[in-house]
Design a protein around this nucleic acid. Sequence first.
DNA 1: CTTGACCTTCAAGTGGCTTGAAGGTGTACG
DNA 2: CGTACACCTTCAAGCCACTTGAAGGTCAAG
Lengths: 143, 143
Amino acid sequence: MEQTFRIGEAAKQVGLSTSAIRYYESLDILPSPERTHSGYRGYTDDDLDLLRFVARLRALEFPLSDVREIIALRRDGKAPCGAVRSTISREAEAIQGRIEDLRKLQTELRTLEETANDLPDNWPTVCVCNLVADSASIRTAVL
Amino acid sequence: MEQTFRIGEAAKQVGLSTSAIRYYESLDILPSPERTHSGYRGYTDDDLDLLRFVARLRALEFPLSDVREIIALRRDGKAPCGAVRSTISREAEAIQGRIEDLRKLQTELRTLEETANDLPDNWPTVCVCNLVADSASIRTAVL
DNA sequence: CTTGACCTTCAAGTGGCTTGAAGGTGTACG
DNA sequence: CGTACACCTTCAAGCCACTTGAAGGTCAAG
């Protein structure tokens, strides 16, 4: 007899939330597992492997549409490597852009933070908000 | 007589979408501007200043809840500097964490990408997917 | 007088879930 | 035996910050 795990235990083991697992199943990204006589989902070790794979793809921030495609290829016995590779490079590109955006933002925020500390609050004439509002002065200082 | 701008022109000038502006108004973050006789929104120069301020806060990725609070303080003639400052530092913290997460992800993705290129696809025994799946081997290599 | 670019409102969709309501199950304890 | 408690079930709605679409009104130019 095969040991199965209930959804809470499965979630703990693979690092997903129970609601995320149910959500993936509802979108037909994951197959519906067997149920116990009382209707509880029972995950086998193989099921857990699949869950772990999905968890890994999501941890790499693959969009669910890509996860769906990759899992479907796998389920049909086709090599999902092509899909995985193209998602990897697309993701890497997107993340690179996002990192650059965030780094610029971060520089702006830190500069604002410093400037705010040196600033006597004298609303409404002198205020960090004016700095925030007046993006020109910040831009010359920061960008 | 004061010159007013229709929503499309206003959006172009401040760098928001027309739908975003209408959305902020619907949430009572922005005041409802005067309407022309035919029902078009008419934005004054002061209105545009406020729109620009909001656009700037959003460009700094302040959550709308914070934008709402800051705009409300401003509207009531109170200095929103405290709120702005606390959001700035909270945002800066959050963005720092997010940057670090993304950099780790990026390293993982780039390593996977390289490894995938050196790998003969021989599904199902040898495949980039196995690498993706087998996070342990990646972790020792990458993290 | 029609074309086309603008504007209006309201509803629904996006992504990736989480949260809540209302109820069933399974086990340990008294 | 009852009951407390942690788990499970489904379905609906909420979250964020919008965008998109439908169905229609307005206005200036040609």
